[in-house]
């Protein structure tokens, strides 16, 4: 098996394990999310596969629900970032020289504004919620996607087949749909996949700081924050969400890596 397909399949396997867990959580959960009958900080094993947290809620149940938030963040942020970023990048790519330069400067400044800082700024005004976090992360992603799209669009527009299409009297919207988008799609999609991994990490960091998904919803970042105080008595609570997080992010990264190599 080539290196490329090894990356791709290993990555897809990791992502599928997490997605499988999330899908499972919609049809079956070991316990109700707010069932506290297990007693506080029960050790792993028996009924409670991973034990319980300090309120007596089943950790495995919370882990599955946290997966919904992680996958939701990845999909949501990629949708926001992809739509805004590709649109802005397309417009900049087609714009006049002056407007294009202005857009490039604004994008550079937006990118200099790191994702987490931008997200914290938006959370500061709009209040901590999953939707705010996802929107903020998506917005930061959009700047990066827009810069990439702009460069790619310019490359495609300088090709002879575009001139040929213009000479043949085909309208710009038609050219965008038939020629530009299909040509930039592979590179943009691989970039979006990489960004999805970063988005999951950013949401976890925000939730860890108490600026993401508010309790009682169990985001993995939030779970890690809560597990920190009891790490000596309940180490599994501090390990399991972290391992799940790393599994998902590595899975997404490897998939993106494998796709990137096959695009080339």
């Amino acid at each position: 098996m080539s290196c490329r397909s090894l990356h791709l399949y290993a990555g897809l396997l990791l992502v599928l394990i997490v997605v499988g867990g999330v899908l499972l959580s919609y049809v079956w959960l070991p316990f109700s999310p707010d069932d506290t009958s297990g007693g506080r900080l029960a050790p792993p094993g028996g009924e409670h596969l991973l034990g319980t947290d300090k309120l007596g809620r089943d950790l495995f149940t919370q882990l599955l629900i946290g997966g919904r938030i992680a996958i939701g963040t990845a999909l949501g942020a990629v949708t926001v970032g992809g739509l805004l970023g590709v649109t802005a990048g397309l417009l900049a790519g087609f714009a006049s020289r002056w407007l294009d330069d202005a857009v490039a400067v604004v994008l550079d400044i937006l990118i200099a504004f790191p994702t987490l800082l931008l997200a914290m700024l938006i959370v500061a005004g709009a209040g901590a919620s999953l939707a705010t976090a996802v929107f903020a992360i998506g917005l930061a992603m959009a700047a990066i996607v827009a810069r990439l799209t702009r460069v790619l669009v310019k490359q495609v527009l300088s090709k002879d087949y575009i001139t040929a299409a213009r000479v043949a009297g085909i309208s710009w919207p038609r050219i965008v749909v038939d020629h530009v988008l299909p040509n930039i799609a592979p590179t943009v999609l691989v970039n979006l996949a990489l960004q999805a991994g970063l988005a999951v990490l950013a949401e976890a960091s925000l939730s860890y700081l108490g600026l993401g998904t508010p309790p009682p919803n169990a985001s993995w970042g939030r779970m890690l924050f809560e597990a920190q105080a009891t790490v000596l008595t309940a180490p599994v609570a501090a390990l399991a969400p972290g391992i799940a997080l790393v599994m998902l992010v590595i899975g997404v990264n490897l998939t993106a890596d494998g796709l990137r190599r096959s695009v080339r």
Binding site: A204, S205, Y208, I250, L254
Partner: peptide, 23 residues
């Protein structure tokens, strides 16, 4: 390195505290 870029910094911190400070 691949593993390292997928690990959130706060979790690394949490693990290091547990091992080197608490244990």
């Amino acid at each position: 390195a691949q593993l390292g870029i997928a690990v959130p910094a706060f979790w690394v911190g949490l693990l290091l505290v547990t091992v080197f400070a608490l244990n």
